[in-house]
Amino acid sequence: MRTNLFILRGRVGQAPKTFGKAAKINVATDRVWTDSNGKRQEKTDWVTVTLLNEKVAERALANVSKGDAAYAECRVADGSYKKDGETIYTTDIIANAFRKLDLGHRDDAEI
Rank of each mutant, 00 (worst) to 15 (best):
Y81K: 12
K21C: 02
C74L: 05
E58C: 01
G10E: 04
D78S: 14
K82I: 14
R31N: 13
I7S: 10
L61R: 03
S80F: 11
G79L: 04
I25H: 09
I25D: 06
D102F: 09
R40Q: 10
K17E: 15
I25N: 08
T29P: 07
D107Q: 14
N26L: 03
S80H: 12
E110C: 01
V56N: 07
G10R: 00
I111L: 14
T29A: 03
T87I: 14
G85S: 10
D30L: 08
K66I: 05
L8V: 14
Y89W: 14
A60G: 13
Y89K: 15
A28W: 05
V49W: 01
K66W: 04
S65P: 01
G38M: 06
A70G: 02
K17Q: 15
Y81L: 00
A70E: 00
I94A: 03
V64Y: 06
R31T: 13
A95T: 10
T29N: 04
D84K: 06
E110H: 04
G13L: 01
I7C: 08
T90H: 13
I25Q: 05
W33Q: 04
L51E: 06
S36A: 15
K17M: 14
Y81N: 05
F6P: 07
I93M: 07
D30Y: 01
K17I: 12
I94L: 13
E54F: 01
G85D: 13
I94H: 11
T87L: 03
R99T: 11
T48F: 02
T91D: 13
V56S: 13
D30K: 08
G13T: 06
V12H: 01
L52K: 07
L5Y: 00
C74W: 02
R11C: 03
M1H: 15
G79V: 07
S65M: 02
K82Y: 09
K55F: 04
D92M: 11
R106G: 15
S36G: 00
G20D: 12
A69W: 04
S80G: 12
Q14A: 14
R11D: 02
A77F: 02
